[in-house]
Design a binder for these strands. Structure first.
Lengths: 134, 134
DNA sequence: TGGTGTAATGTTATAATATTACATTTTGAA
DNA sequence: TTCAAAATGTAATATTATAACATTACACCA
């Protein structure tokens, strides 16, 4: 199976490229300003690309910040669910992966007679670097 | 110690009242339309009341939906952290309570050398009623 | 009692985030 | 080749949230 990114369209590749080269999450309009020279003129073009990239799991949205990050994990299965560690001091974001959050949340949901489908988890605090500086 | 709600101002009481009488989370502008007859005319008045209510833990924000809910738990300690079960079919929202999430997330964060401070968790799926109807 | 400082309020304007609507073009499979 | 689905382009607008600044309410206490 070919890499998903080989199937991306021009706009999608452009948007993903900007996100992959960013060390931080980016907002939709920041992305837009960054790529206007590449022929993308309207917010909608960015949002459409983001929608697709999120759908295939190459990009995740950080809900509490209205920001978007490229996923660094090949074949990330977080197409729907996301789990982040967000540094309140430097805004650095790390994705939690490959853990048992799914089963843990399923159990929590069960206790409430709720059928788990997906989740978004955002943990705020201090990243390794900022902890040391304090 | 007196109930916190006794110290609320007029606008804060008005906004909290609307939320407490709603069976669902409400958006800021929906709240605004609902209470314009009570003398609140501008978005800012609603947002300011919401900010305060969130600060004291009487209201929580659902980040993924830009919506707000009154907290039903007396003396809710979720002044900063929130955990919700959100039904994808009927939009019903239930708050998860109990603090075992805190310790679980702290551990997850530790593994990444991250200092936990607070979190927001939104679990999507089917509530009890909607599960049965399916 | 009146001054003082803080919090809350009122009002207008505007910023920031996201979607609708609709016409057109590209793409890829039958 | 043809046709439908997906993607694109463009303008307008909807939705969510904050900035800026003038004014008012109220607790505290000299």
């Amino acid at each position: 199976m070919a890499l998903v990114s080989e199937n991306l369209t021009k706009n999608q590749k452009t948007v993903l490229g900007v996100l992959e080269n960013s060390s931080e999450p980016m907002k939709a309009y920041t992305i837009l300003y960054d790529i206007q020279k590449k022929g993308i003129k309207s917010p909608l073009q960015v949002y459409r690309a983001l929608d697709k990239l999120i759908e295939i799991g190459k990009v995740h949205k950080i809900e509490s910040r209205n920001s978007y990050v490229a996923c660094k994990h090949e074949g990330c299965n977080a197409k729907t669910s996301t789990s982040f560690l967000i540094c309140e001091k430097c805004d650095n974001v790390t994705e939690l992966i490959g853990n048992n959050l799914f089963s843990y949340f399923s159990k929590q949901a069960d206790k409430n007679n709720f059928k788990y489908n997906k989740h978004c988890l955002e943990i705020f605090g201090l990243c390794e670097n900022c902890k040391l500086k304090n």
